[in-house]
Design a protein around this nucleic acid. Structure first.
Length: 314
DNA sequence: AATATTCTCAACCGCTTGTGG
DNA sequence: ACCACAAGCGGTTGAGAATAT
């Protein structure tokens, strides 16, 4: 096979029938052909690239294969805890803007992040019997899941020691810090002390969003994609005093924007369908039945949620 | 061991946006 | 301003793998 695109490329556009276009999984030969062609000619102009390379594929298919699989800087393997945290955080800002989120996770593709969200995050929402786009679930992510991830990252860092690579406390801090180049500017989340939100009577200052970014988060994008109404959490609450009194003080710092809305706010976000009895029945939540990397909540978390829900539902 | 069910992820599809004539 | 085409994006599907029964 001439991997150099046969020298001169026929510029006519044969029909699909003439091309006898292939579909489905790529073969090793096709991968090699595509990689060699791009190595010699660069990427772009995907339709003509496919034709000139002698690939019986659509340009779209070639582009996707290259971007999601063959590109040398594509990172494969499990999503790390830090990456999970970043995905959750960025999704809370931008919604299903997978490509935009992927830009902040070097080597990860939008497809991979999208798959992660669907298979892991939506699975948890399903297990909780609530909608993944519900405020209830988003708050649960923000005030339980994400802090839990931070804990685990820091625990891993502590056990690995400061000199080890990968997940270190400084890495975590870096990821969460506004100086992190992977994060949008002005981004500050999960400082070490203080919790402000009214999470079950305890007010929690929203950790992640400033008034300026909340306005952008609230807007819908040009695709009409749902964007997390994060600003709903911050709007109108900037003057509410901190009144932290939960037994879970370590996750969010007072400051930034006051935030008093909650899972169980008087506005009625508590959903009785979020049934912790059933959660307990589902031992995945309690005994590690799920993959360890997914099992972000433990008995204490669930007890905490139950207490908060109970106290505020009287 | 056989079968059913669930999970994962690569690939496709349809739509929107960008660009050049 | 309009059209055609390419590129990009997010949603969805389906085959194979993994796990449960």
């Amino acid at each position: 096979m001439d991997v150099n695109g046969r020298g001169t490329c026929n510029s006519t556009t044969p029909s699909d029938e003439e091309m006898d276009l292939r579909r489905g999984p790529w073969t090793v030969e096709e991968d090699v052909t595509l990689m060699n062609y791009i190595a010699n000619h660069g990427e772009g102009r995907w339709n003509s690239l496919a034709r000139c390379a002698g690939l019986k594929r659509t340009g779209k298919s070639c582009r996707l294969r290259w971007l999601n699989y063959l590109r040398p800087d594509v990172r494969r393997g499990n999503i790390t805890l830090e990456e999970q945290l970043l995905i959750l955080e960025l999704h809370s800002r931008w919604g299903n803007r997978w490509s935009k989120i992927a830009q902040h996770l070097p080597g990860r593709t939008d497809n991979e992040i999208k798959n992660y969200w669907r298979t892991r995050v939506q699975k948890h929402a399903k297990q909780l019997k609530c909608d993944v786009n519900s405020k209830q679930f988003k708050d649960t992510m923000r005030y339980l899941w994400m802090p839990r991830l931070v804990e685990r990252i820091q625990a891993a860092a502590a056990s690995n020691g400061p000199s080890s690579g990968g997940s270190t406390a400084s890495t975590t801090t870096h990821l969460l810090n506004s100086n992190n180049p992977n994060l949008p500017t002005g981004h500050v989340i999960l400082p070490p002390t203080g919790i402000g939100s009214n999470f079950g009577g305890a007010q929690v200052n929203h950790p992640s969003y400033t008034p300026e970014n909340s306005s952008t988060a609230a807007s819908s994008d040009s695709y009409g994609t749902h964007v997390s109404p994060v600003s709903d959490l911050t709007d109108n609450y900037s003057n509410i005093p901190v009144n932290y009194n939960t037994n879970n003080p370590d996750y969010f710092q007072a400051g930034q924007v006051g935030y008093s809305d909650s899972l169980i706010s008087p506005s009625g976000y508590y959903n009785p369908a979020m049934d912790f009895q059933s959660m307990e029945m589902n031992n995945q939540w309690l005994d590690g039945g799920a993959d360890a990397s997914d099992n972000l909540w433990n008995v204490d978390d669930i007890w905490f949620l139950q207490q908060q829900f109970t106290n505020n539902n009287i």
